[in-house]
Write a protein that binds this DNA or RNA. Structure first.
Lengths: 306, 306
DNA sequence: CCCCCATCATGCGCAAAACGCATAGCGGGG
DNA sequence: CCCCGCTATGCGTTTTGCGCATGATGGGGG
């Protein structure tokens, strides 16, 4: 059957559950009704338990049962075990229905700082029992190694044990401040770019290479890029530089607030796009806080995309 | 099978025991070895438990298992349940091997006060974790109603659910103080008794009727007993009266210390005897403190009898 | 005072749960 | 790149555990 045969030192825990029901109801018959068992089955289970423990548990009196001293000891233990298990079961269903716990989120500094952060407040309001640990870095943390629970990425992951959900498309355009345009004019062709003050991203994120380095390489030999006047490894600082008229730069749309005074240049040129993805390990897909975070962000992404 | 079919809301507790073993050993195979089960059996038990709880418990990784969030919750509960049960199991065997707890003893005032009490100190020394609640009364408490755990009686109980063990024989003799004998002489016949100062017991204990009322009835019409000079309902006080020369009385041997100056009278007469019994309910026979108390008293009784 | 009913213990036959064996699939480390 | 160890699963078999029915027992009501 299903029980260690080594020494016979182990008891069948399920018999303790049955014992507890009997102790509570005070009768084999009633306990059988509660458990969906016949009276005889209960009788034999208790008998077996008494044999396993080598201790009588009940005084069989015609008018109901009376716990022996040993039975009373076991009854207290069984009651506490029942309570402990019950607590855990409600925790389990709470975990299923009421998201809670800590969620370790990672995103690139740009996307994370400008798109995600403003939306996090609402999420935390929605789920007050979720604690978010936000890691903004352009390095790709290893989700398989539990460096983070969920990531916002600008490229598709290759590992097959990672689930990916598309969030939105990041559009890139060339911008300059009105003051800059007044002073230097607009570039009309790729060749014009050679005479402009170019600002570019200096980060290592591979996804940025195609988009943010566009200014240095477009219409040029890739191995001989244009000289850049300013390289910044922080995209926020980069935008500030553009704002202040330091030059022109390719910026993602999530950085451009509506009503921004920045002037969009070279509108005819075909610009790179990047897809943003929500990525999390297969094994996290059943965790409620991951589910609600995912659903929340996808909804926000759809509303935000225009 | 052995599990409530009502709603399927209950889990088989024994599966939790198996789950705990798996969580501790980190492998179905190893857990199977520990439990004396095959790997496949363990796998299916865990699978069934996950279905019962509607929650995945392990991430199956090729390099061992990793507890899910829910698995971790259950693991903590299972650990505490295991500890609780283990504690109880050792309590059970302690109860079996190391007697403890409260023992409610009842005895007649005479036997209890003079024979039992002096021996109790040694018993309490021998078993320091046993607390004795001694009830000295000549009324027979109802052992079935738990008015006491064990009794010393001077007659056999009639209830079949009571266990009786013979302790020793109580001999009764007629005594007087040397001073009394000097003044009144010894009675040589039953008729002589009519001219003596007779002291008798006034208690209601039925066992005493035959023995202690001997002086009033012996060699006489039972319905017309001798007049008594002193009736006392406390046998200790009765002996003190004899000691001080107030009269002659039938006294049990346990009251007569060796070397007592009292003079035994009418040595030729056949005197009543009473058997003393240790009585306890059938349901207490497996309780360790009852067992050791019983064995202790029987041993003392054998050594004391002479 | 006696009968009756509720309770627990147990024998018997049966159904199903659970087990072991063997195989397949899978993934990581040497 | 292969190999080893781990888990999942199908299959045939064992055995456990169950229900039913009966027997024994003891307390309470008429």
């Amino acid at each position: 059957m299903r029980k260690t045969h080594s020494g016979g030192n182990a008891v069948d825990w399920d018999r303790i559950r049955i014992f507890y029901t009997v102790a509570e109801s005070g009768s084999f018959t009633k306990a059988g009704d509660v458990l969906g068992l016949s009276q005889s089955a209960v009788s034999r289970q208790i008998g077996a338990l008494e044999r396993e423990l080598r201790a009588p548990l009940f005084h069989r009196h015609t008018r109901g049962l009376i716990l022996t001293e040993q039975g009373e000891l076991l009854w207290r233990a069984a009651r506490e075990m029942t309570q402990r298990l019950e607590r855990t079961r409600s925790q389990l269903s709470e975990t299923r229905e009421h998201p809670s716990g800590e969620l370790k989120v990672t995103a690139t500094r740009g996307l994370g700082g400008h798109w995600l952060t403003p939306r996090l407040a609402e999420f935390l309001d929605l789920y007050p029992d979720i604690k978010v640990d936000l890691i903004l870095t352009d390095e790709e943390l290893d989700l398989s190694m539990r460096e983070a629970d969920i990531a916002i990425r600008l490229r598709q992951p290759q590992q097959p044990d990672l689930i990916q959900r598309k969030l939105f498309t990041v559009h890139y355009h060339v911008y300059a401040s009105p003051a800059y345009v007044k002073r230097f004019g607009e570039p009309k062709s790729y060749e014009d770019l050679d005479n402009h003050r170019l600002i570019s991203f200096g980060g290592t994120s591979p996804s940025y290479l195609t988009a943010v380095h566009w200014l240095g390489t477009i219409g040029r030999d890739q191995r001989n890029p244009r000289p850049l006047h300013l390289v910044v490894n922080n995209i926020t600082a980069m935008k500030r530089a553009v704002d202040s008229g330091a030059g022109i730069a390719v910026l993602p749309d999530y950085l451009i607030e509506t009503g921004s005074p920045l002037v969009q240049l070279m509108r005819e040129s075909e610009m790179p796009q990047l897809e943003s993805y929500l990525v999390y390990p297969e094994e996290m897909k059943s965790v409620a806080r991951v589910q609600v975070f995912r659903d929340f962000l996808i909804q926000k992404a759809q509303r935000w995309t225009y």
